[in-house]
Design a protein around this nucleic acid. Structure first.
Lengths: 207, 207, 207, 207
DNA sequence: AATGAATGAGCCTTCATTCAT
DNA sequence: AATGAATGAAGGCTCATTCAT
């Protein structure tokens, strides 16, 4: 009996973890392909090869998988963002680092996040809005709000400022993902310039 | 002249128009609350008090209602935008006018468009993305892309530029709608400043 | 006011009759095309150009139209059959006359009655079984049963005999309608020979 | 040998087979009662006591059940017919054997096949046309057409001949099923006599 | 735990029928 | 009477969830 404790995760535990991972992985891809709303629990388990009922041994609903994926995204991204934040010398530097981290993350995940087309699709349906993508985006947003509130930018209403920044961040990110090859450096430069100096800055840097 | 109105609609015609409106109105609100994908035809009719079958006397599907709403948004907004565009003296002026028109429209519609919560909701589900909202937003987007492509801004890649502008436009718009009172003038000023001069400009104008 | 009485069926009455006829005609064709079960009341009225509600001023249901059509078939066919029956000199003559009349009727109506394919279609669905067709068929059946019962054929069980005769009548009739040109004479000859002398007779007459 | 049965079906497998059977059985009876077209999937499952969704675990549509029933009928009847056919010495013998087999089959199935009323029902709706019945009937029809075409009967147009034969076969079969007790021998004798010698033959054999 | 069939709520849609005009 | 919109009962089907094995 006591062995049970000393022994590393037994076979049972192992498959348990593996199954959980399999489900998350399946969910990730299927969310990316069909969009959160369109996905059914069946879509997810079908892709794992597991039985229907098994799903409920791991998650109570589609929402719960989505939450897990969000957490996953956050867990992976948060430390990166935190590190960059701590190294940042000032507001401008922080923005550059945050966006750089964000775009790098996006590029790595691009198979899910908005892999296909810009948001302006003819009829509704926001593609590629993965739970993870949203979660990571939210991390960035929060950090910007905080930094702005802390007065870093000295530019009036911090919420408005943050709104503008994340607006740029998000849409420029989309543009980036649509292009081939995906150029995170260019995207970061562009977004940062826009944030710091607006069109004026672009003009200057383009000349 | 009198002929035109000589035949009043008649009770029948009247209720028909009213019902159509009721359905559109219900769809509008329910789309705003649940998001396009999550909405069912039943959600829509339930909110009208009409019978299930009645829906199909007016629209053939959820998509068709959405399309009608989009058209509605476009029909109302397009001429306004067009007028502003024609009066614009240069790129900066155009941006100011376009955003001004957009925010005014948004404010008028605020009961539907994102009236409730910011986009940053914890878990998936993009709220407030009404077909109308998307349609109007798309109008703005298209006009900015066009003007940018025409070289107005002289700032590198027009698509990237447009992306940044609409990112700002959209998220600042959201902020605006969340505040009380809704201040379209302030939002326009802020967005325009960000677009033209970025944070630098803000700092200056704030001082 | 008094004029109303002296005048022959006024406009009102006229359209009433015409509408009824229009509905019956529409039903006839649509039954022939889709088969009784598949037909909806809407199918019928749609083909008349009348309004949905109007149908119910004339018939209470699809069944009632079908009944009316049956009656119609009977009303047109019964006298013909009766006449032939009265002129018949003996059983054989009666059979010949009855089938002759039946096939002639069938040929005239062929646009509805089984215009398309034999009954042996792959999967269920008996085509072309018009209410009228069934009614007329039933007339023939009844007359044969009666005559057989009356001892005309002197051949054992009259119901069995009638069954055999109508089996021949019906399927040979189907064959007839499938062929081009439709040859009522040949069909009658064939059926009568089969009934009277079976294959033996055919062999003889073919030689 | 023992291996084959060494693994008993298990409760699960068993109920699965039973449910499938239950559905088929329900479909059989309901088709017989209402006629193929009129039957709804819900009619079928209602009669099984199973839940609505369960139907779709076994069949994808009404058509698929019907096909299964047809196959069933064919699978059971085809070998019997084939055997009789091979043993037949000549056309007359073949006809006798084929009808004998057909009527025997019919009698065994009588609970479904036209158990209730003759075809002459007042208003439309051909009763008792079970998918199985049609399938088996079709077997007989095909065999007769083939044999006739092969020249067995030497009697003019083989399709007309076949039509007459199957007409007799079918309607005499119906008569047989309506009577108590069901007498397959008598039905076979009668039908064969009609086919071979017509009424003439009946008269002779009756005297 | 894993399995996978059963369940039943609920969605979309059609259609017979009613009824105010 | 004619009209045609409104109604609501079904029907086909999907899917989340449960549960016996």
């Amino acid at each position: 009996m006591s062995q049970v404790l000393s022994v590393p995760p037994g076979r049972r535990e192992l498959t348990k973890v593996q199954n959980r991972q399999a489900i998350l992985e399946a969910a990730r891809s299927v969310f990316g392909e069909l969009g959160y709303d369109a996905v059914t629990v069946r879509d997810i388990i079908r892709r794992t090869g597991l039985a229907a009922g098994t799903f409920y041994n791991y998650f109570r609903s589609k929402d719960e998988v989505a939450a897990a994926l969000s957490d996953d995204g956050t867990r992976r991204f948060a430390p990166i963002l935190k590190a960059q934040r701590e190294q940042a010398s000032d507001w401008a530097d922080f923005v550059r680092r945050a966006l750089g981290a964000y775009y790098t993350f996006l590029a790595d995940e691009q198979s899910n996040w908005l892999a296909r087309r810009p948001i302006d699709e003819s009829h509704p349906r926001v593609h590629g809005v993965t739970p993870e993508g949203l979660a990571v985006f939210e991390e960035v947003r929060a950090s910007i709000v905080e930094e702005a509130a802390r007065g870093g930018a000295q530019g009036g209403d911090p919420y408005m400022l943050a709104a503008a920044c994340i607006g740029i961040a998000r849409y420029v990110g989309e543009q980036m993902l649509v292009r081939r090859p995906v150029d995170t450096q260019a995207a970061t430069d562009f977004a940062v310039t826009m944030i710091l100096t607006g069109v004026t800055g672009l003009r200057r840097s383009t000349n």
